[in-house]
Design a protein around this nucleic acid. Sequence first.
DNA 1: CCATTTTTGTTATTCATTTAACAGTGCAAA
DNA 2: TTTGCACTGTTAAATGAATAACAAAAATGG
Lengths: 213, 213
Amino acid sequence: MENNRYKDIPHKTIERLSQYRRALHICADKGKTNIFSHEIASLLHITAVQVRRDLMLIGYSGSLRKGYNINDLVRLIGDLIDSPEGQKVAIFGMGNLGRAIINYFQGKREKLTITAGFDINPEKTNRVIDGIYCYPVEKAVDVIHKEGIKIGILTVPGDQADETVNIMVDAGIKGILNYTPTPVEVPDDVYLEEYNMISSIEKVAFYVKENKS
Amino acid sequence: MENNRYKDIPHKTIERLSQYRRALHICADKGKTNIFSHEIASLLHITAVQVRRDLMLIGYSGSLRKGYNINDLVRLIGDLIDSPEGQKVAIFGMGNLGRAIINYFQGKREKLTITAGFDINPEKTNRVIDGIYCYPVEKAVDVIHKEGIKIGILTVPGDQADETVNIMVDAGIKGILNYTPTPVEVPDDVYLEEYNMISSIEKVAFYVKENKS
DNA sequence: CCATTTTTGTTATTCATTTAACAGTGCAAA
DNA sequence: TTTGCACTGTTAAATGAATAACAAAAATGG
Ligand SMILES: NC(=O)c1ccc[n+]([C@@H]2O[C@H](COP(=O)([O-])OP(=O)(O)OC[C@H]3O[C@@H](n4cnc5c(N)ncnc54)[C@H](O)[C@@H]3O)[C@@H](O)[C@H]2O)c1
Ligand SMILES: NC(=O)c1ccc[n+]([C@@H]2O[C@H](COP(=O)([O-])OP(=O)(O)OC[C@H]3O[C@@H](n4cnc5c(N)ncnc54)[C@H](O)[C@@H]3O)[C@@H](O)[C@H]2O)c1
């Protein structure tokens, strides 16, 4: 009940915390040990107030004169958004996008590991692709259950999205990142995040057109 | 001044209109000619009120008994978000993601065409990759100006983002879709849309973790 | 011909997020 | 010691977006 005290942190704040952490890592690598809210803000091109507000929500207090301690802050963000034991991720659809994600993401986050791929194409299944073993989708329930995978990234063709989501949910996936252009539905206990790239491009195109006037 | 009457349409509505259109195309292909707000809603897994509200904003009126005429609605959405003469798009960074986007997007939208790629790697430049000619970045100003490209997709490594955005802006790009994890800054007359995939995955992971309680 | 149903279009309300306002604090310099 | 400065942390207000509420219209069936 009251053990998830972070339920009331805005979704947008969670996203930004992830970005703060990335920026802080870069600063730490440069030998910086402390940082002011307005410095973080200018790295992300947002306002210092927003940074302070976000940090207030997670309960971190900086020093008045020296700002925030970078290592402490990185650790605190990690405590909030990471699972100490790590989380496993599966990719559904080992096509162009799925493989690009593997190559990009794998090894980048300490606590998140892509541990399985699934596909329907027999030329791709039952072998290692870009370092990830690709199973046939029929094995999804078994593998996901056995490995304890809770997070799935959906990169199958749009017309396969619904069907594949059902498989994912049945297999025990509790969080889905849908890169398909097809909106999908999930039970209440599954967290769903969708990103439609075509909408994004069309949105940019729209505002470019409108600004011309 | 008052010739862009669509300035007050919410950004989220623009995104949804793009998705409505996609869904409507699929319906039209199935031979459907009319559709109710609640049918559109259930395709996108949103509410019928939201659909009607969005359509109200763009000034389309459906028939009380037959709902919306699919062809008319598709046309009207096109009038709003497309440029009749089409718009050209350039990709900066012809790596895994850039090429995945080309393969995925090209040919999909009638009024948006990827017409040039740019890269810094001499093995990739001055030749055709996945159907798109890849120029060295030094040619960006020339090519973009000559072709009249206004939209750019940024898929260079994160540490090259700022520098590349400057080149894009100098070359006359007016809308940027940044897939880099590095937040960038653009002048007021350039529209910027950013998408950070790692934040998305970490967000999903966070809510999966939190729900476990 | 009138009540019922179904759906649209619009206004009002609620919810989420950002931005503004400002009090409080510790250091440094006068 | 005191004054001013440059920060932080928090509350208040404004903006943006989703949801709820409801009047009006058109067909249907008694
Ligand atoms: N490529 C991109 O840049 C991009 C960008 C945004 C969104 N997307 C979306 O991502 C999805 C994949 O795009 P892509 O370019 O990688 O396509 P792709 O054709 O290269 O990859 C699709 C993969 O899914 C597999 N597949 C098909 N049906 C399946 C099923 N029922 N179960 C499991 N696997 C199945 C295919 O064998 C293939 O390997 C599409 O929905 C596309 O709209 C792609
Ligand atoms: N691959 C993914 O799925 C994915 C997902 C989200 C975000 N991203 C981001 O997209 C970007 C590209 O990812 P990727 O996986 O395609 O990497 P990649 O290394 O495959 O591609 C990067 C490309 O950019 C080129 N490049 C390097 N410096 C350049 C410069 N100054 N100007 C022009 N071109 C230059 C490289 O030659 C290479 O072709 C990265 O910033 C990454 O963080 C990738």
